[in-house]
């Protein structure tokens, strides 16, 4: 724990300027993730800029049939919005599968996708962690890997001492749904506004595991746009976890099936970012969406999956579990004759 200055500027432009001007500044929204990290010493900012009352709380219709979620709209609010429930049920389901009622009342559209990993070593400042302390190493390799990645990791067992090693997963449920929906992230930064396609928001560790997303310092999420889906589209979110509620995903699946049989698929709990299953989508393109076809496609997606050994037998179980969960989720979205 470290003392910090707290600021609540007049508007978003000022907030962006404040954060951009101070290299060790952060935005604060609902605080359900950041405040924990302040206590634990995982986050040690000098300046905390509260944007919760500055960004929009509104959920508004877009002219093309899409929906704009203001960054300060809460997870509870979005999950309960009748438009979301009817047209983007995958998102409502993902939100309701996350955390608890109290947390969802505080958690925001802007903050949720930017929550940090739940890797236990990231959260414990007495252990080495490249994400928290670049270059210190990765304690997770060979450790407690039940919630860690099987996709987007090096082909062989990673080197725990290498500065680029990180096998963490992104924990958000909401983000998996947003990745499948091709949501658009509206960002205001020191250099002005830009839009980032949601599937490109999060990154793989690359050579810098400390960075979760492509956002630059001082860039603020102002809203997330949901593009309209063709009428008749069906979607669902399925989260598999160790207890019935209040647990992060072991694996999760967001599936969207359009009326002409196109499948959009994103996976949670398996990679450093919400994992858009582009390989599986490619295999299926132009194919009839049958159980067998989906089985083949997900096998192709998982061909490069790499189990992580560790405490309690590691996380190899995730690979068959993903395949089974995808099949079960898509089965529920297919017309009878294909399932």
């Amino acid at each position: 724990m470290k003392p910090f200055a707290y600021a609540r500027p007049g508007d978003v432009a000022e907030a962006v300027r404040d954060v951009a001007a101070e290299p060790n500044a952060v935005f604060l929204a609902g605080g359900t993730n950041l405040v924990d990290h302040l206590r634990l010493g995982v986050a040690r900012p000098d300046l905390v800029v509260d944007v919760r009352t500055l960004t929009s709380r509104e959920v508004t219709d877009l002219p093309d049939g899409g929906l704009r979620l203001g960054a300060a709209s809460t997870n509870s609010q979005v999950a309960a919005d009748p438009r979301v429930r009817e047209r983007w049920p995958v998102l409502a389901q993902a939100l309701l599968a996350g955390a608890t009622g109290q947390l969802r009342n505080m958690a925001t559209t802007g903050g949720n996708p930017l929550q940090r990993t739940r890797c236990v070593y990231f959260q414990d400042v007495t252990t080495p962690c490249n994400k928290r302390e670049p270059g210190s190493g990765c304690s997770a390799v060979g450790g407690y890997t039940r919630y860690h990645a099987v996709l987007g990791t090096p082909a062989a067992l990673p080197d725990p001492t290498a500065p680029e090693t990180c096998i963490a997963t992104h924990p958000s449920d909401m983000a998996v749904a947003l990745a499948a929906l091709d949501a658009q992230v509206r960002v205001l930064g020191p250099a002005g506004e830009r839009t980032v396609p949601f599937p490109e928001l999060h990154r793989l560790p690359g050579d810098d595991p400390s960075r979760d997303t492509v956002l630059e310092h001082g860039e603020l999420i102002t809203a997330i746009d949901l593009p309209a889906l063709p009428a008749g589209t069906r979607s669902a979110y399925r989260k598999v976890r160790d207890r019935a509620s209040y647990a992060f995903a072991l694996v999760s699946v967001a599936a969207v099936v359009t009326p002409d049989g196109e499948l959009r698929l994103a996976l949670g709990g398996v990679a450093h970012r919400p994992w858009r299953a582009t390989r599986a989508e490619e295999v299926l393109r132009g194919q009839q969406l049958t159980q067998d076809a989906v089985r083949g496609a997900i096998a192709a997606e998982l061909a490069a999956a790499q189990p992580q050994p560790g405490i309690d037998s590691g996380n190899g179980f995730k690979i068959p579990l993903v395949a089974r969960t995808v099949l079960a989720t898509v089965r529920g979205l297919l017309p009878e004759e294909h399932s």
Binding site: R118, Y147, A244, S245
Partner: peptide, 10 residues
């Protein structure tokens, strides 16, 4: 958060 205890829903 990570040491799971049975919750109401279970």
């Amino acid at each position: 958060g990570e040491y799971h205890i049975t919750v109401n829903a279970d």
